Simulated assay, not measured.
Amino acid sequence: MAAWVGARRLVSTSAVLGRKINPYSPTPRPWPILPHDAVAQVNTPEQKMLKEKEKGSWKDLTIEEKKAIYRMTFPLTIAEINASNGEWKYVLGGVMCAISVGIFFSVITKQYFGPQPPYTYTKEWQELDKKARIPPTVIG
């Protein structure tokens, strides 16, 4: 069984239950920083050449070649993964719009479609209530 998010398979429930994950399986992993395959994807001739050089001695490789091999396996660094992409601005804007629309409709509903105030709020009722609350004077 697998957990799904939208149309993508997120993680196998066997991984959630504590079973071992096969590192050579083509299924997506629950962590984004590891390579998707056991071996990095080789697409261009330069990458194929670096992959062949990688099989030899690493002392013969330059620092740039080592960085290129690392980038083939791990396309993003931790800092690049954790970097903000500005999505929070759209989420905050959407939440504010939803709140303002809700407030607008509640005010309009109360003002035009709300129930009438009780009759005890009228001036006539309040004056009669004041007269009824005045204690009767004792005529002597």
Rank of each mutant, 00 (worst) to 15 (best):
M1K: 06
A2N: 14
G6S: 11
A7V: 08
A7S: 13
R9F: 06
R9D: 04
L10M: 14
S12C: 15
S14R: 15
S14M: 14
A15P: 00
V16W: 01
R19D: 04
K20G: 03
K20Y: 12
I21P: 00
P23F: 03
P26Q: 12
T27R: 14
T27H: 10
P28C: 10
R29E: 03
P30N: 08
L34D: 10
L34R: 08
P35T: 03
P35R: 10
D37L: 12
A38P: 03
A40Q: 05
Q41D: 08
N43E: 10
P45W: 15
P45S: 06
P45M: 05
Q47F: 01
K48V: 04
M49Q: 14
L50I: 02
K53R: 03
K55L: 13
K55S: 06
K55M: 14
W58M: 12
L61F: 01
L61K: 00
T62F: 04
I63M: 13
I63E: 10
K67V: 05
Y70R: 14
F74Y: 08
F74M: 09
P75A: 05
P75R: 01
P75G: 00
T77C: 03
E80Y: 04
E80V: 01
I81L: 15
A83R: 07
S84T: 05
S84K: 13
S84V: 04
S84W: 02
N85V: 11
N85G: 15
W88I: 11
K89G: 04
G93Q: 13
G93N: 11
C97E: 06
I103F: 06
I103W: 05
S106D: 11
S106W: 05
V107D: 07
V107E: 12
I108P: 01
T109E: 13
T109M: 11
K110V: 08
K110M: 05
K110Q: 15
Q111R: 12
Q111N: 06
Y112V: 01
G114Q: 09
Q116K: 15
Q116D: 14
T120E: 09
T122D: 08
W125S: 13
W125V: 12
W125D: 11
L128Q: 09
K130Y: 02
K131S: 07
I134N: 04
P136S: 12
T137Q: 14
T137D: 11
